[in-house]
């Protein structure tokens, strides 16, 4: 059984279809990349899968459950999480608090506990903070332990979103252009981080324009063009697919 199964998915905004009649599956335990030119509908697809948008038609099944139109926080509880191309950082909080928000599903959060700051809450908070610091180390943000999110660089914030998503302990992690705007060193670090995440058994869906990274890391690639599937296959198959070369890779070089 596949972890995610998308069937005949369509999303239109007014008259424009950003995703049209798209079907594909994602197997558990793989790194699955989605590529395509700007405006191909990659982010829209993420928004549909994670419940930010409601599909116009078609179905999305996660863990064999229909999830089209289910609210995002419920999907997070089912084990799905993501990062954003346009950052969704909580700039009004510290870096580690951002990650702790990601752990929300798993912490002590009773109202009375919180108001009275009962010992069990204090214990849970101490543990959560420690765990979140470890996650920050894991994505290479060890030096930002005490930083405010508003004081961090763009590249650091991209990784902070990864740490935040990991704190929710997802089965399926969707990364929307994690390397965009990063320099070469940072890109290599992110590449490493993704491999390590996958190594822990998390299924990763990656949207990325950096072809070197995509080709090196992916088990499977889906190519979108104008919201529809152009091609699908292993990196080797994609690299030699004439349609893809014509429509996409050709332009990039």
């Amino acid at each position: 059984m596949s972890l995610l199964k998308v069937t005949n998915l369509t999303k239109s905004f007014g008259g424009v279809s950003a995703i049209r009649d798209l079907s594909f599956t994602i197997e558990a335990g793989t790194i699955h990349s989605i590529i395509g030119p700007n405006g191909a509908g990659k982010t829209t697809l993420f928004n549909l899968i994670t419940g930010v948008y409601t599909p116009s038609s078609g179905s999305v099944r996660f863990d064999d459950r229909e999830i089209g139109g289910v609210e995002p926080h419920k999907l997070a509880a089912l084990g799905m999480n993501r990062t954003f191309q346009n950052l969704q950082i909580f700039h009004n909080m510290s870096a580690v608090e951002n990650v702790m928000v990601g752990a929300h599903l798993h912490v002590q959060k009773g109202l009375a506990h919180s108001l009275l700051r009962l010992p069990s809450l204090v214990r849970s908070e101490v543990e959560t903070r420690k765990h979140c610091w470890e996650l920050m180390d894991f994505v290479g943000l060890g030096q930002y332990r005490d930083a405010e999110a508003s004081a961090m660089s763009y590249g650091a914030l991209k990784r902070l979103e990864i740490a935040r998503a990991l704190a929710a302990k997802p089965k399926l992690l969707l990364l929307d252009e994690p390397a965009a705007g990063l320099n070469d060193t940072e890109t290599r670090e992110v590449d490493e981080v993704i491999k390590r995440i996958a190594g822990q058994g998390v299924t990763v869906v990656l949207v990325e324009h950096d072809m070197k990274m995509v080709m090196g890391i992916s088990d499977h690639i889906l190519v979108l063009d104008y919201g529809a599937k152009l091609a699908e296959g292993t990196p080797a198959e994609i690299r030699s697919n004439p349609d893809v070369i014509a429509a996409y890779l050709g332009n990039v070089g």
């Binding site: 950052l87 969704q88 950082i89 909580f90 979103e161 935040r164 998503a165």
Partner: peptide, 12 residues
């Protein structure tokens, strides 16, 4: 308050 969509997606 900081980023509503971000909060929803991480489980809030």
């Amino acid at each position: 308050h900081g980023a509503e969509v971000g909060a929803r997606v991480v489980g809030i």
